[in-house]
Computed example of a mutant assay.
Amino acid sequence: MKLLSSEIKNKVLESMVKIIDRERHNIIKANKKDLDAFNREDQALFDRLVVNEAKVDGMIKAIEEVRVQNDPVGNVISDLTLDSGLKITNKTAPFGTILIIYESRPDVTIEAAVLAFKANNKILLKGGKEAINSNLILEQCWHEALVENGLSKDWIKLLHLKREETQEFLRNPSEPLDLIVPRGGERLIKFVKDHASCAVLISGRGNNFLYVAQDANWEKTLKVILNAKTDKISGCNALDKVLINKNIPNYEAKLKELQHVLRRANVNILVDENIGNILSSENKIQEEDTWYEEFLALKIVLAEVSSLDEAVEKINTYSGGHSAAILTEDKNKAAQFMEQVDSAAVYHNASTRFTDGGQMGVGAELAISTDKLHHRGPLGLKQLVTNKYYVFGDGHVRV
């Protein structure tokens, strides 16, 4: 693959900022066509589909953030000269071609592509049919910026494939694919994993848990739970399950206060058998599948546990490995929880809503990876490269 200079990549991004700003009215107008045709029964998907002035501003901000970051390609990881005189240098290198498959969110067409492009990758975008008008105009913006700077439109391309065609493309791609990143729900991720013939980086389900320890500060607890659940219900970092230690002082009164706070925020509450004996007006969990479910809605589970160990076991059994939090004033207890919970991000006395590239100092992100290879957590610019060894000899042979 041809390596582009940092200068030319940054010029493309400078052009994109101007073009997106100039076309903002047309982008929002195209998005309205998608919104008008969308069935609003899936509120979370609808929220992700919306492009307004704030979303356009967010696209521009993402491009500018990536533009000012250092080029991640060609950086020396290690540089060794062996006793034989053989010189071995390990450098960062592009993946090659990255396919990004995503549902609903047109801003991914900008925010994901800008990261992959700055990391010198060719990008194939497969958006959902519900966002077709939005994605088409954003692709036009990319192509204008590329051509304006003397580059081929092929660097960033929107795939126009139906489900069956996408399935066949994954199995037998018409061009080399080096990495696939699915952005969406479990059905999409499973579809890609079942059919892909190359590496897949999983941006997994949320289904995030929060454990309230016996010594938790209750004022902090209420504030964190409310934020994590209601700040953005369509976010993969939103809270779904709350495990409460039954030995909390004034247990019943605090449960009823939490119930009041959540109801006031229009959150639908499900409870386990034990908490159901106290909050008798709430619906009880009917099947185990609920524990595995990412809600993406104003819905939450409240359940009772007797210890930190029980909470950790439950989280590691059911969570999506995305984010988990503990509310406690005991730093040792927090450390134990954070070390033992198997999630990409673990929190002490803080909302899970911070699992985000911008909030974590990574900048714009391609996804939140719940895989352990090659990277876990926010997938930013520095993580969109692989590596390559450069070996320099002078007629060296191995004996």
Score class of each variant (00 low, 15 high):
Ile28Asn: 01
Val399Ile: 15
Ile202Asn: 10
Gly276Ser: 01
Ser306Lys: 12
Ile248Ala: 08
Asn387Met: 09
Lys18Gly: 08
Ser197Glu: 08
Asp178Glu: 08
Lys232Cys: 07
Ser351Gln: 10
Ile248Cys: 09
Val261Pro: 00
Phe95Asp: 03
Asp289Ala: 10
Gln336Ser: 13
Ile285Glu: 05
Val50Trp: 08
Leu115His: 04
Leu49Val: 10
Val50Pro: 06
Trp291Ile: 11
Leu255Met: 08
Ala145Leu: 09
Ala196Glu: 07
Glu64Met: 03
His322Glu: 05
Asn26Asp: 06
Arg22Pro: 00
Asn10Phe: 00
Leu302Thr: 03
Gln69Tyr: 00
Asp42Tyr: 04
Lys190Pro: 06
Pro249Ala: 15
Ile275Asn: 05
Gln167Met: 14
Asp57Lys: 14
Ala350Glu: 13
Gly85Cys: 06
Glu139Asn: 14
Leu170Tyr: 08
Leu124Ala: 10
Glu144Gly: 07
Glu164Asp: 11
Arg264Lys: 11
Lys229Leu: 01
Asp356Met: 01
Ala145Gln: 07
Gln214Arg: 14
Asn120Gly: 11
Lys2Asp: 11
His348Thr: 13
Phe354Arg: 05
Val200Gln: 03
Gln214Phe: 02
Leu270Asp: 04
Asp36Tyr: 11
Ile278His: 01
Lys256His: 01
Gly276Val: 01
Val212Phe: 05
Ile244Leu: 06
Leu298Glu: 14
Asp57Ile: 04
Ser323Tyr: 02
Leu138Phe: 08
Leu298Pro: 14
Asn31Arg: 00
Asp71Ser: 08
Lys18Phe: 10
Val346Arg: 12
Val200Arg: 01
Gln69Leu: 14
Leu379Asp: 09
Ser152Trp: 00
Glu139Cys: 12
Thr81Lys: 14
Leu115Lys: 02
Val261Tyr: 05
Ser323Leu: 03
Ile100Gln: 03
Asn120Ile: 07
Leu279Lys: 03
Val192Met: 05
Lys314Gly: 06
Ile101Pro: 00
Gly85Met: 02
Ser84His: 13
Gly206Lys: 07
Glu144Phe: 06
Lys256Ala: 04
Phe295Gly: 10
Glu111Pro: 01
Ala325Ile: 15
Tyr211Cys: 12
Leu115Ser: 09
Ala303Tyr: 02
Glu165Trp: 01
Gln359Leu: 08
Gly321Leu: 02
Asp154Arg: 12
Gly393Ser: 14
Ala334His: 07
Pro249Val: 11
Asn90Pro: 00
Ser319Asn: 10
Phe209Leu: 08
Ala325Asp: 14
Asp394Ala: 15
Lys223Tyr: 05
Ala112Tyr: 00
Glu65Lys: 13
Leu161Gln: 03
Ala324Gln: 11
Gln259Cys: 10
Ile202Cys: 07
Val271Arg: 03
Thr328Tyr: 04
Asp79Met: 02
His195Gln: 11
Ser84Thr: 15
Ile285Ala: 01
Ile368His: 05
Ser369Cys: 08
Lys126Leu: 15
Leu4Gln: 06
Lys153Arg: 13
Lys55Gln: 14
Asp57Trp: 00
Ser152Ala: 09
Leu159Tyr: 06
Arg24Ile: 04
Val224Leu: 06
Lys229Cys: 02
Ser323His: 02
His25Asp: 13
Ala311Pro: 06
Ser351Asp: 14
Leu327Lys: 02
Lys32Met: 01
Gly380Asp: 12
Tyr389Pro: 13
